[in-house]
Amino acid sequence: MSAKRSLVLTALAMVAFAANSVFCRLALREGAIDAASFTAVRLVSAAVMLGLILLLRDRQLKAMVRHGNHGSALALFVYAAGFSLAYVALATGTGALLLFGAVQATMIGVGLFQGERLAPVQWLGLISALSGLVALMLPGATAPPLTAAILMLVAGAAWGVYSLRGKGAADATAETAGNFLRALIWLLPLALFAWPGQWPQGLALVYAVLSGALASGAGYAIWYLALQGLASATAATVQLSVPVLAALAGVFWLDERLSLRLVLASLAILGGIALVIRRGSAR
């Protein structure tokens, strides 16, 4: 794959990832859809889109049934549900920062548990990231709601687990499609415990479909294509742009305020994670 094509695909994928946060906030802010319904519409739309991609690619849907597993599907569902529930009360940029911070922290933590060793610079980066997270969560006028923040951290940890479980998949698109298909099973207990009593409607429903079909389904397919031309460390580092993109989108399209606390916490968290990843690549 040419460097130019890889760059374009990577940029599209990062925009899609950030768009998930924007679509979710837009939908929930309208008040015409609840978090559980948003999760359901998003998962179904993503499964349909990935099924269509496989149908166009392979002329059949057998790969969607053969690939994927229930463990990864559960992690995917926990991510999607926690993501939606958290964004009821979180600003776009804050939610994306907590999410991607938790994703990277989970993957780095698993590596440490499995015996990986960090260089002094990496430890400095890890301490910086954790300090930024603590600073963001400290009580204050601009602190995110604790319950929503915890839900987003759980969502990020679940996505980190999902990413680790899918490492080395022979056919990443088919694997993702199969996992989305299996994740639909968990919509039944979600409906039993969180049924809103009314169907989603209007623009909120459109935003949920866009989040699933475009930002999730098509976005993930684009990302897997982009990965073919990226080094592992580059792929991990470039994702740190998503909270920045999401925060800027929240300011311009949702009239959200960019607080000094969020800016400083972002620098500490994303800069710290970048140090860990970059140093690990150099070694």
Rank of each mutant, 00 (worst) to 15 (best):
L146D: 07
T147S: 10
A148T: 02
A149T: 04
I150V: 13
I150H: 04
L151H: 01
M152D: 00
L153E: 02
G156L: 08
A157M: 14
W159E: 03
V161A: 11
V161W: 07
V161F: 11
Y162D: 01
G166V: 13
G168E: 03
G168S: 10
G168C: 09
A169S: 15
A170R: 13
A170K: 12
A172M: 12
A172Y: 05
T173H: 10
A174L: 14
E175D: 15
G178M: 10
G178W: 11
N179W: 09
N179K: 06
F180I: 06
F180A: 07
L181S: 13
A183G: 08
L184S: 06
I185R: 14
I185S: 05
I185Y: 15
P189M: 04
P189I: 06
P189V: 07
L190N: 00
L190C: 03
A191N: 01
F193M: 11
F193T: 12
A194W: 15
W195A: 10
W195V: 04
W195D: 11
P196L: 05
G197I: 11
G197S: 05
Q198V: 04
W199N: 01
P200S: 12
Q201F: 09
Q201R: 14
Q201I: 09
G202D: 12
A204Q: 05
A204E: 10
L205C: 12
L205P: 10
L205M: 14
L205T: 13
V206D: 10
Y207F: 15
Y207S: 04
A208S: 15
A208F: 06
V209H: 04
V209R: 01
S211H: 13
S211N: 15
A213F: 05
L214H: 01
L214S: 03
A218T: 09
A218Y: 05
G219A: 01
Y220Q: 03
A221E: 00
I222K: 06
I222W: 06
W223T: 02
W223E: 02
Y224C: 03
L225E: 12
A226S: 07
L227H: 00
Q228S: 00
L230H: 01
V238Q: 03
V238D: 03
Q239M: 07
Q239A: 01
L240F: 02
S241L: 13
S241H: 01
V242W: 08
V242E: 10
V242R: 09
P243Y: 08
V244Q: 06
A246R: 04
A247Q: 08
